[in-house]
Design a protein around this nucleic acid. Structure first.
Ligand SMILES: [Mn+2]
Ligand SMILES: [Mn+2]
Ligand SMILES: [Zn+2]
Ligand SMILES: [Zn+2]
Lengths: 139, 139
DNA sequence: TTTCAAATTTAGATATAATCTAATTCTTGA
DNA sequence: TCAAGAATTAGATTATATCTAAATTTGAAA
């Protein structure tokens, strides 16, 4: 199976139509582990046909996040970043430049049931903070 | 020592002048574990004297975060929320309403040194996601 | 106490990020 | 082929946060 077919399949098996614009977003995120912002994705997708409007880019990112194929990472004071939820991993967020980097995944202990109360837990996310390699050198 | 003196002291020992406006932000966050947004803090502080402008509220929140007295929590698609960094704790963020709730703290295993590379780790933050008690009931 | 430079505050403008609107185009299945 | 729903679009709008430049306040030196 080609990559294209795999993307098409994963979209459709998640209940999302595979449109040209949606495909372009998904393909860009899968070949790119740099956690781009919506603006960067919009720009990248529009460097070639087919075009995609800003509204569509945001709509599709929202749909893909809902379908569980894409993860949105909120960063304090900066635009949200996105990545394809391929292999499980954690994130390192740089205090200085805001870059988001992948970190090896390891299982995180669940909170005690009594502490969870009536809440329904979907996932536990571990975020490391500090200085990325580039910013660490400069300080 | 009164609470007021304690706040004044903690500001000054963190190298931040204790101005009336800064004090009001800090006091509001310390008597309030609801993780208010900047807009909510601005409004609360301005319900009584002394007044504080929007710019000052944002400036002071930035200064207090830098001093380590306040934590900023970015939430996807919503305004950032703030809390006083008193006792260590984790956060639960509701997928549905975006509310941020405190969870008991427990130690998180550090990433492997090889995985960290040249990065400098400041903190590891555990975020639980799912539905808060109120939203869980309604679904 | 007086004085002054630095820090802080302010109102309002501006910038940035994200969503909404309503018209159009595309897709799918009958 | 055709109708209905889904998706896309340009541009307006909203939401969030920062910037600017002038005024005020502060603390420490004199
Ligand atoms: Mn990632
Ligand atoms: Mn908290
Ligand atoms: Zn960095
Ligand atoms: Zn909720």
């Amino acid at each position: 199976m080609t990559d294209a077919e795999a993307i098409k399949l994963s979209l459709e098996s998640s209940g999302v139509r595979c449109t040209a614009q949606r495909y372009a977003v998904m393909a860009f995120l899968m070949e790119n582990n740099r956690h781009p912002t919506a603006a960067e994705i919009f720009e990248a997708v529009n460097r070639m046909d087919p075009r995609s409007s800003r509204a569509t880019t945001y709509n599709n990112l929202r749909d893909l996040v809902q379908a569980g194929l894409v993860r949105e990472v909120a960063v304090e004071g900066r635009a949200a970043r996105f990545d394809a939820t391929g292999m499980k991993h954690h994130h390192f967020i740089c205090d200085h430049c805001g870059n988001v980097e992948d970190m090896d995944w390891y299982d995180v202990p669940r909170p005690a049931s009594v502490s969870l109360g009536e809440r329904i837990l979907r996932e536990s996310e571990l975020i490391f903070r500090g200085l990325c390699a580039k910013c660490a050198l400069r300080q």
